[in-house]
Design a protein around this nucleic acid. Structure first.
Lengths: 204, 204
DNA sequence: AGGGTTATAGGCCAGTTGTATTATGTCAAC
DNA sequence: GTTGACATAATACAACTGGCCTATAACCCT
């Protein structure tokens, strides 16, 4: 079974083209032909890699979540072996916000994802699972940080997790140029400063 | 010039149908015909009230912002003459979140609005202005609250305003059923509790 | 009562959509 | 070199799109 082309790679390049279309032309112009044009293929070619438009969409959405996770993963490696939980949370938040090209592309795709999830049960389930998983990761991090004395013991881990994630709400303001990236970073840092009052190794 | 039908009202009813289509069928199925069907009119009829699909969209979007503002306005009246700034901010935040039917409809329309703004300059400008105006309103409120001693004088009004608005990021988590309305309210209240440390009339 | 205006519905069109099908090119194994 | 699987492109097609135009009905004003 000779494979001259890496299917996965080809699908990813089509997915990236799809992101570009979403960001530059809008969800309404998200057609197979438009994506093919953006990717530089014939539309028949795209069909060879995706059985249907729906499948193409699904893949592009999942790929966006995946890429965001990977960016966070790479960032974590740079933080070294025992990173401060504050830095970990900061990294996660910043990678989820549309602050630079890569993050902007996946962020926009995520926004479209959520909008589609409103009426599509399958997409809703997948988006929900993905987001819930991310949320529980953050909650675990917060719990550990409390236990380790980085965060005050009076803080409720569930509420603090939710508040942290809510900060992704900066997305809208960034996209519409209402709040500058500089201000967003200042706000996030300010918030984290207030959350992390302890200096770790609490009481031990 | 005899008008047998209230044009404004008819346009609003079409706009509401459009909201329903966005929420129930998705942005991709947002067609003149689909909106007409949802509203119970012929597509020719819709064209009689909107010169183009674009105009219909614009109206529906503006109408959504308008309705949100009106809900806030009505809520403010219920708060009486000299409401606590904490209650005012709480009201604004809650009316912007998809916590109940009306707010959900306008919130979804807003989400579509932002997504469209990414590639449409006109929409971007209008959405930006609308959001910036809301933001400056909140900032004014925060500044006054600091001056009046409701909020600690060590807080930066710009950053605090931005953080407050970022809490609209709960939208995504609510829509995907990752965080319960109860938890969102708890988080918002917790946040406001921490913001409003003073008891007003500070030092006067 | 009649003339003019609007409300409403429906049909038409050229263009676009997603999908299915077909044709041609390309490579590996026998 | 022939065969078969795959890559790529092109075309065909029914459904649907937004915009335009027309027909009928309802209504207001004089």
């Amino acid at each position: 079974m000779p494979k001259q082309v890496d299917h996965r790679e080809r699908r990813e390049s089509i997915a990236r083209a799809l992101w570009r279309v979403v960001g530059q032309r809008g969800v309404m112009h998200l057609t197979v032909r438009e994506v093919a044009r953006e990717a530089g293929f014939s539309h028949g070619h795209v069909q060879h890699y995706f059985a249907s438009r729906e499948e193409m969409l699904s893949f592009a959405m999942d790929f966006a979540s995946e890429q965001t996770a990977q960016r966070v993963g790479r960032g974590l490696e740079e933080l070294g072996e025992h990173p401060h939980p504050r830095d970990v949370l900061r990294l996660m938040l910043i990678e989820m916000l549309p602050l630079y090209a890569d993050a902007r592309a996946t962020s926009r795709m995520s926004a479209a994802y959520v909008l589609e999830a409103l009426h599509d049960k399958k997409i809703h389930a997948r988006a929900r699972d993905s987001l819930a998983q991310g949320r529980s990761l953050v909650e675990q991090l917060v719990r550990q940080a409390i236990e380790d004395g980085y965060i005050g013991p009076d803080r409720d881990p569930v509420t603090e997790t939710n508040l942290l994630l809510a900060l992704t709400g900066f997305t809208t303001f960034l996209e519409l140029d209402v709040i500058e990236p500089r201000e967003v970073l200042a706000a996030v840092d300010q918030y984290l400063d207030r959350l992390f009052t302890g200096d770790g190794d609490g009481g031990a």
